[in-house]
Write a protein that binds this DNA or RNA. Sequence first.
DNA 1: TCTGCGATAATA
DNA 2: ATTATCGCAGAC
Length: 195
Amino acid sequence: MSRRASRLPRAFYRRDPRTVAPELLNKVLAADDGRQARIVEVEAYCGPIDPAAHTYRGMTARNASMFGEAGHFYVYFTYGMHWCANCSCGEVGEGVGVLLRAAEPLAGIELMYAARPKARRDRDLCSGPARLTQAFGIDRRQDGIDLVSGKSGYTILDDGIPPPAEPVSGPRIGISKAIDHPWRWYVPGNPHVSK
DNA sequence: TCTGCGATAATA
DNA sequence: ATTATCGCAGAC
């Protein structure tokens, strides 16, 4: 790395998730135990204007962390067995954020394989929102943690690699409402993007 | 490689 | 009933 990696500041997250999402590409999700992966696929969820967002109908016990201060995890349980992680964005009360969908493992890879014994190659470790959380050991315990303070065990780093000049955008995956919005972005050509 | 389907339980 | 998914089985 050409310069020391720095944690993304609060102001980075405190914007529209459709602005934050493509800028999160090529940033590094990092855990204190050494696991690191470069974010290659994200989706924006836009609260009251977005029928596909968990926060569309207001705050509940489940989605409360998405309504809090920007730069915190919103981790939710779905399909009876999977966890997915978002970073909260915008202003307090907006209920907007960015879903982390896929990442390219960089470090702590043996820990990721241990957390995902069925993975056969690096591409299987973080190429999907629930795979990513499993590889990083993220679940209910991390819902609401602060990604900016550096004291929560997880953060997102800027290591000097800029986002792609032309990120690919398109419809979001796995939703049945608001399917027309092109609020998914990924790094073109990266094999760790989900299928 | 790709396609279709079952698992599995919280949420609203 | 639906779900911001995954991995397996079977076809090619």
